[in-house]
Amino acid sequence: MMFVDVLLTVLTVAFALLTVFSKKTVISAFALLMTLVCIGGIYYQLGSVFLSAIQVLVNAGAVAILFVFVMMLIDLEKYPNNTERSKIKLIITVLTSLVSLGVLALIINNNIDTITVVNLSDSSMKALFDRLFTQYYIPFELATVLLLAAVVAVVVIANNNKQHPGKE
């Protein structure tokens, strides 16, 4: 099954690069969607079944829809992406990418033993929820409070039903 792993990784990187480098914004939005779906596939390959479903359901099926929605509503042909080319930028980009890739490789190398040791013989969902509802319970609940507060905040900003004093 290595073939599927490699394919998913290559697809993810390709779509991510397309997101960053494409000149049309809608193509960037769709490439972002495909990146998220492929990352869901990678989660499945790593054994975390529930997380892959949640990734597709939430990230690809709700967040990315909002992105695509907004990109489609706004006519962005009038504002093409920045196409400035400069040698210094290119050199710095390549150097930074190489350094980051090196750092990532070192970190993954450091952790490769732990990844293969994790044994998800019984349901991975159970393993996830065992941790989530006992050890990491308080971040879970506080994240709920955060979401509630964010909903309140967004409604405050977007609410057009109230009368405000005239424009200053």
């Binding site: 969607l33 079944v49 529930f50 479903a53 597709v56 829809i65 969902m125």
Partner: peptide, 18 residues
Amino acid sequence: HTDLGIFFAFAVSALGSY
């Protein structure tokens, strides 16, 4: 056949709007 069972169906049909 997967652990997810019915959850997979709903996760994927969320993509239906695309």
